[in-house]
């Protein structure tokens, strides 16, 4: 059989048969969407963790990550940014529409809550807005998983565990940032934050493993996606970024801190940076390794 190099004219026509990867949401301006998706998880997660520790600065940072960073990335990604307001009109079936409503609701509720926390701390109104903003923060951290999960043509995404993975990853990032803030803020219970961070790190690693195992078993295309991540073009990013930086290094540092008592602030900050980078790269890998089921099933 002739090789493709001798038949370059054909290559462009074959892309629908080889199980090609999606590119719109990860290449060129798609990078902005990856960052936006990650900011949703991180900001929402940080806000929830900050509610847990009653850490006002964490809530403010979480709000900034969602409202300013995530919002700006989404805005810059759109082909027609001036029409973004139209995106709220189809929440009946569109997860992007629901997501925008979650982000807007969170932004409004959390803003009022932060003002109330500064002016009327402990008031019933503040508690009410904390609950409302907390619910929307959870929705912001979760919805991107449903956005991807809805895509039937990509078996790698079409798994019910994906939204769970996204929200756990977001909360893990939130705990990481809280630990980092705890070094400079005495009001945060650093030991408790570290303990929770360890628990969520273990849950996250288990979820990633289960997710990849389920995707590989789903069908041939799902297996291709997993192999692309583990052995193919994404192997370096996955093993060095997601596994080494995102899991093993924070694991070593956090357990050193557990047994040695207190770890040096430099080590803790390193663990936090590694955790954040790992979370970002995990989402990068999830978006980048999304392969479509071939349009026409060719006989082997």
């Amino acid at each position: 059989m002739a090789t493709h190099t001798s038949r370059q004219w054909m290559v462009t026509h074959e892309w629908m048969l080889k199980g090609n990867r999606q590119s719109e949401w990860i290449e060129k301006r798609g990078i902005l969407l990856w960052l936006a998706f990650y900011c949703g998880g991180l900001g929402g997660g940080l806000y929830l963790v900050s509610l847990f520790f009653n850490n006002l600065w964490g809530m403010i940072v979480g709000w900034v990550i969602v409202a300013v960073l995530k919002g700006s990335f989404h805005f810059a990604f759109l082909g027609k940014p001036a029409r973004f307001w139209r995106m709220v009109f189809h929440p009946q079936t569109s997860w992007l529409s629901r997501g925008l409503l979650f982000v807007l609701s969170f932004t409004g509720a959390a803003f009022i809550q932060i003002i109330l926390s500064l002016t009327l701390p402990g008031s019933p109104l503040e508690i009410l807005f904390k609950v409302v903003a907390g619910i929307f923060a959870l929705a912001v951290a979760t919805y991107t998983g449903f956005v991807l999960n809805k895509v039937k043509g990509v078996p790698f995404w079409n798994l019910p565990i994906l939204p769970v993975l996204f929200v756990i990853g977001g909360i893990l990032g939130g705990f990481g940032l809280t630990v980092g803030m705890g070094i400079f803020n005495d009001q945060i219970n650093l030991h408790a934050a570290e303990n929770w961070s360890r628990v969520f790190l273990i849950i996250d690693v288990l979820l990633i493993s289960i997710y990849l195992a389920l995707a590989a078993r789903k069908d041939e295309t799902g297996k291709k996606s997993v192999l692309y991540q583990l052995k193919g073009g994404l192997a370096v990013i996955f093993w060095s970024g997601v596994v080494l930086a995102g899991a093993i290094l924070p694991f070593i540092i956090t357990f050193y801190s557990y047994f040695a008592g207190d770890a040096a602030p430099g080590l803790i900050i390193t663990a936090v940076i590694c955790e954040i980078a790992g979370g970002m790269l995990l989402r990068y890998c999830l978006l980048k390794s999304a392969i479509y089921s071939p349009l026409i099933a060719l006989k082997a």
């Binding site: 082909g79 139209r86 569109s94 956005v147 895509v151 039937k152």
Partner: peptide, 13 residues
Amino acid sequence: AGCRYCVIACPYQ
């Protein structure tokens, strides 16, 4: 608005 969700969601590309 150019969000490309439809491009991603079309199983027939």
